[in-house]
Design a protein around this nucleic acid. Sequence first.
DNA 1: AGCACGCCGACT
DNA 2: GTCGGCGTGCTC
Length: 806
Amino acid sequence: MANTAQIIVNIPARSITKPFSYIIPAHLPEITIGWRVLVPFGNRKVEGFVVGLEPECTEGLKAILAILDDYPWFDDNMLKTAKWISQYYLSSLAEAMRLFVPGLSGVKTQKAYQASAAMDYEAAAILLDNKPEEYRQALTYIYAHGPVSLKDLAKLPGNIDAMIKFFLQHKLIIHADTVNTRGKASTTTIINLAVSKETAAQAEQMLPKTRAAQRRLLQALLQNNELALPQLRHLNITQATVKKLAEQGLITSRSVPVLRNSYDSVCQQAAEVSLTQPQQHALQLIIPAIKAGTHKSFLIHGVTGSGKTLIYIKAVAEARRHNRQAIVLVPEIALTSQLVARFRAAFGNDVVVIHSKLSVGERHDAWRRLQSGQAGIVVGARSALFAPARDLGIIIIDEEHEFTYKQEESPRYHARQVALIRARLAGAALVLGSATPAIETYFQALNGTHTLISMNKRVDDVPMPEVTLVDMRQELAQGRRSVISLPLQEMLARALAKKEQAVILLNRRGYSTFVLCRECGHVLKCRHCDISLVYHTPGNSLRCHYCQERHTVPDTCPECGSRYIRYFGAGTQKVEEALTALFPAAKIVRMDQDTTRGKMAHDKILAAFAAGTYDILLGTQMVAKGHDIPNVTAVGIISADTALNLPDFRAAERTFALLTQAAGRAGRGAKSGQVVMQTYNPEHYAITAGAEHNYPAFYEHEVAFRRQLNYPPFANLIKITVQAADEIMVHQSANKLAGELAQAMAGIAADIIGPFPASVHKIKDVFRINILIKTEDPAAVTSLFRALHISSRKDVVIDVDPVNVI
DNA sequence: AGCACGCCGACT
DNA sequence: GTCGGCGTGCTC
């Protein structure tokens, strides 16, 4: 009979990788694999996940304290999925399992102390004899009040930390932490200066060299009014440093709850729509798979407007008919309110919507509803993939090519990949949908991994929009220097004359408004990140898009002192000015990072635009996604090829997807659509295929390029990033690592590319060097990494199947 | 992550 | 010599 459990403690530390053994107490016989429990760990109490059982009780083990739920949280498939993730993406099992838990941890402990049972009053009196009066006072307080929280003790006079340490050492008191298992809103620590900047600057000067961390923190605070503790990680600032400075009265820190936000979606009336021929055909393939209950995967390659959402709804309905649950993933919940609304309309309260801004409590409730069967469908961004669906019948991934499906922190999983594992384990159908499938996915579909369902006609035979390519070099040659070319101007004039609406996409990358000195060419860059600062009209400020630090705009060039410094590039504000000049009567609304600060701002702007309040919607990538407004007949793309020139092997794929998506916004209703794409590369296959709505042509070109250079899908990539605050050190350690790898991987079919500096060489004062591994045997490479302990190194980040290689 | 341990420069 | 900051290692 097993009386010992192997437990993964849920602590966000990369160094803890292996399970710990605990005794299963006699009063908790139900504990078995999958339960979330409370265990003593060091002198704390933490959440643990039972991952194994052992028959023998070894000496000296601690016992499990309590169970956290009244059922095992992890079922077999969830546990297997977590193990697969940690194996494949080189994360710890704790990190992978944490994905399945609402919030970072199911428990929250508060420090507290009480009198120890073995307490000897006489001995205590002797010990306290030569201590200050405060000691006796504090100890008496603890004895009088039973378990006392640290918070309460802090109100007493004296250095409470030192006193507690002393009491614990002499066994006068013991830990008596209170454990809260209810999901509470998570909080973050905000730090402010407690004194004037002058005083702080003086204090900073006065600090001896030995208190370097404190100086760093003060310096950072002098530049920013307010900082959150997680932002200071790169400065190696820990809570200890914050505490020290707070004790000196120089700073204050406070805990603020992370925004609690409930998602209220507008319910749309479910209209009974008849299926088109292609939709029926698709469902004829998908429904039998759901009925059979064995795993099968599908790729629906359907042009924008071909009616994929209705297929999703019908397929989910089929799964629900068999009392099986469904997971529907969307790239970003804020940009997909139309899809959410349609699911709500079709399934009502059977739908649970999950997004990253839910508080722990809300997420807990949502997951509890799924777990208990009160709800059967979860719609959400990639994290919804880890919802505790008990009998999964179908997983749908809409816009499967989107890069947001890749998590950019450990575990660096790709939702598409994990969904395939979950669906296989559950015997569920996997439906991937896209107008521009990822090259990898389409390749798999052609190879038979997924059943390919092509839908190349729009619903009701609405024609695809007519696309005009404008060669901007010729525009210039003809003396037209505006960011709005003549054909674009003419198209807009036509649309406006007919009281139709237009969408204008400004592919932001490379077109941000940076500040340039016209005399010496100096570009203002962030001090902490190797990246140009971006000018923002509101507040007349410069901002770094990597570390969010704000700067004021200088009057003169900091390099040469020239007064001729000015904003450059063609941000949305610039294009807006140009449009206003051309069409003074047109009502224009901008949608970009500046105007969509609030969570619902997207929806509000889109709703107002859909209602006809505006004539032209101008914005970045986000204007290309998720909406379906019948009166939009004209789409302009200011610069079709800005993403094309990025030194990334997926640049063409990104460009093609964006163009197709943007073009797809035109002519969704009864009126036909027109698109103007402005470009400097009118011959490039991503541009020409995008203009012709010709995915197969693009795919053929792209896959040939990938095959030639042995890029995915022909090989797997693994990106290693070496980080260090010292520029010389980072090069040395990257070179050393590359050397070691070259030697260790001699027997494996793998190429090492690099080391080369990351495209943004410095972020938040940390230098980054990449090493790229190209291999046809990723499992061999990752197990080698594990053997060499590279995956647990603090200065190394490993990204398996990265979406960004630069 | 916390917390003890131990090293090392600064001060009575 | 002690004190205290800060890096290192361990937690069943």
